[in-house]
């Protein structure tokens, strides 16, 4: 059925030491990308300078660069990456759909549509209020996709959810385009918002939404073991004593919290939630308790890397949301090609 369909066979092959090694390795990579993100830009700093400024900021130009320019975006990229990695892993496990992604299931589009409505029709310019629109949109979209995807007699299938998400995304994109083209000012604001980016976003937003991120993360950790039980199919999960209705609602809640917060912070960023859970499963096998943290760490590392390379990729900075697509899409295509289709 899916990449998660044969957990037993794979679990035998991948032992705990290898999983720990993967997680530690990923954390080390994340640490390196954080330092790189603080080092690289118009002005290149040495790793030593960066670490010194972090621990003991002096009154040097380096302090302004590290603290003033690069720390905010690094923190935002870190948080957004963690959140999207978790949301992607949860979504793929819940829907047993290897293609599930906040972007694909319409959650990003819902957030974007709500924010665009706020900007264009209600004249909402403050980021602090925009995030509530993003949340409402993400939540509404996930509810709609889920209702569409689970209507009828038979239970929800991955294909249904993906199709319902594609339908909703198309409707909402049309709406966003229609609204965005109605005025030049709205268009100019929104073309920048609609490209996911970690720069020019307000770090103060993080102060408002951290409780949601923490709550989403906690719920995600709480549901992971139960998600393992439904990996072999919902009937098996029920037989193993999982309360399916409650599991679905809790997981959807976690996804909405995480995606809504991430989108409110950085705008819609695609591909992180799609690709990295695959990489994580490739490294540690299908056990959700390992996939979840690894996919979070890897997503954060990739988003930081995307943001950093975007600074030096061309004369004009390329937004992180675009860089993730450039990095993520080829990776996704390689995955699709390598895996025998029976496993997709």
């Amino acid at each position: 059925m899916t990449a998660l369909a044969s957990p037993r066979a794979e679990q035998r092959r991948i032992g705990t030491p290898r999983r720990v090694a993967a997680l530690v390795g990923a954390a080390a990579v994340l640490g390196m990308t954080v330092v790189l993100s603080l080092m690289i830009g118009n002005e290149w700093l040495s790793p030593g300078t960066v670490l010194r400024e972090l621990v003991d900021p002096g009154a040097t130009p380096a302090r302004d660069i590290v603290r003033g320019l690069r720390l905010d975006r690094t923190v935002i990229a870190l948080v957004v990456g963690l959140a999207l990695g978790a949301a992607g892993a949860l979504m793929q496990a819940l829907t047993r759909n290897p293609l599930a992604d906040p972007g694909l299931l319409g959650v990003n589009a819902g957030a974007a549509a709500a924010v665009v409505t706020g900007i264009a029709l209600l004249d909402v310019t403050s980021a602090g209020i925009q995030i509530w629109f993003a949340f409402a949109g993400a939540a509404a979209a996930s509810v709609i996709v889920y209702v569409l995807g689970s209507g009828g007699r038979a239970s929800t299938t991955p294909v249904r959810l993906a199709l319902a998400g594609a339908a909703l995304t198309a409707v909402l994109s049309s709406y966003v385009n229609g609204v965005a083209l109605s005025s030049q000012a709205a268009f100019d604001t929104m073309r920048f918002w609609l490209v996911g980016s970690v720069v020019g976003r307000e770090i103060s937003v993080l102060g408002t939404i951290w409780p949601f991120l923490v709550a989403g993360g906690l719920v995600a950790a709480f549901v992971s073991p139960a998600l393992n039980a439904i990996a072999l199919g919902e009937d098996t999960g029920r037989a193993l004593g999982v309360n399916l209705g409650r599991l679905r609602i809790l997981t959807a809640l976690a996804i909405t919290l995480l995606c809504g917060a991430a989108t409110a912070l950085a705008g819609p960023i695609a591909f992180l939630g799609l690709v990295l859970p695959h990489v994580a499963r490739h490294l540690v096998g299908p056990d959700q308790r390992w996939v979840l943290p690894l996919s979070m760490v890897l997503s954060a590392a990739l988003l930081l890397l995307a943001d950093t390379t975007g600074r030096i990729a061309s004369e004009r900075e390329v937004e992180a949301g675009i860089m993730t697509a450039f990095i993520g899409a080829p990776l996704f295509i390689v995955l699709v090609r390598r895996r025998r289709l029976a496993h997709l």
Partner: peptide, 17 residues
């Protein structure tokens, strides 16, 4: 394109359900 997106998406949703 806005109209076809709205109608077509709604149509697809109806079709699927």
């Amino acid at each position: 394109g806005v109209v076809t997106g709205l109608i077509g998406g709604a149509f697809l949703a109806w079709l699927l359900t």
